[in-house]
Design a protein around this nucleic acid. Structure first.
Lengths: 201, 201
DNA sequence: ACCTGAACACCGTTCAAGT
DNA sequence: ACCTGAACACCGTTCAAGT
């Protein structure tokens, strides 16, 4: 036993994260466990702790990769520089499309909570901030007369709102009400909010 | 051993739910386990399955009690029949106040996901629908010229939005952006959305 | 009928031991 | 240095056995 060295540390990290992503894609965050991950990659459970501090560390790193894919999708949605009134809607649609197509990965980002006291690494926070800047940029183009604090507050309100629509949209618990698609509810939120926010002075 | 009969079935259910609520209030849903619950009430783990189908059933029943308290708080917030423009804000403030003061219980309602295929009992869905009706009533008073479908869509959009603000407000993951309180972000969402929605025609 | 407690199949984490 | 596998303290669930 011991010393097989079939993979470098970085390779081991990569295939472990890949296995974790496969498990989450198939069964959600509940379907993930340290033992299932190592089973998939032909290692035993102890070896996981050579590469990750603990299972939360693995999940956080997986979630950072999800944020990277989400950011790429958002950036692509406005790559052709549409008019700002369309751009902000394109961002929302891209966010919803991501949540719809990579539901389990998207959910894992928000479902996972670190043990009390622990905090998310800086790299994670930066990826979130980067996404917000995308929204702020488009809001600034849309309402150049608004100050940066107004823009930042609106970005947060709108983005939280779209996020809430997605969260509750996936939750049967709230399906009770009406038969609208996530897009319709998000559209209502955007239309009415922007109708207020874009009003000159 | 066996047959102690210190409590009726209903009493056992009640003290088990109370113990579960204490555990969740103190440590969140993560701090809850079947063994911890029975330890608190002087029973052994098997006895829990006399009263609950499984641990998910216990959590769902606990969450229903949380929804009852939330509904009571929302109803109280508009008990003195304020003008509709204030009432909708009073509902939002009450929701936020509940999330702020009973954070772990409020989070548990949305964090908990039933195993794939299982669905929430009707009683649970009814409690959610009841809350929505409260919002719809106030929106109807505010905008009597709007049709019932417009009202229902707006209720869903607004409520999802406020919910999203609370969810992301509690999540350090998103603290990255700005230093606004949940109330401020929710206020921005309400002000701008209603500014659009209340516009005649 | 009520309740126990052992059993089973899991889980995250650690670490002495092997190569 | 790398990796194993046993050990520990948990977990949800079941069920024969006791009163």
């Amino acid at each position: 036993m011991g010393r097989r060295n079939a993979h470098t540390r970085e390779e081991l990290r990569e295939i472990a994260l890949q296995a974790a992503e496969d498990l989450v894609a198939a069964h959600g965050l509940t379907g993930l466990s340290a033992r299932k991950v190592v089973n998939r990659i032909g290692y035993t459970v102890g070896s996981l702790y050579m590469v990750f501090n603990n299972i939360d560390d693995l999940i956080v790193q997986m979630n950072e990769r999800t944020l990277d894919r989400l950011y790429a999708m958002l950036a692509a949605a406005i790559a052709d520089r549409p008019p700002a009134a369309l751009a902000i809607r394109a961002l929302a649609q891209a966010y919803i499309a991501f949540a719809l197509t990579q539901t389990h990965h998207w959910l894992a980002v928000y479902q996972h909570r670190l043990p009390k006291g622990e905090t998310v690494p800086d790299s994670f926070a930066e990826k979130v901030a980067r996404m917000f800047e995308l929204v702020q940029q488009q809001l600034t183009l849309l309402c150049p007369w608004r100050g940066p604090e107004e823009i930042a507050l609106a970005a947060r309100a709108l983005w939280s709102g779209i996020h809430g629509v997605c969260i509750l949209g996936f939750d049967q618990k709230l399906e009770a009400v009406g038969g609208w698609s996530i897009q319709e509810v998000a559209g209502s939120l955007l239309d009415n909010y922007l109708s207020g926010f874009t009003q000159q002075q």
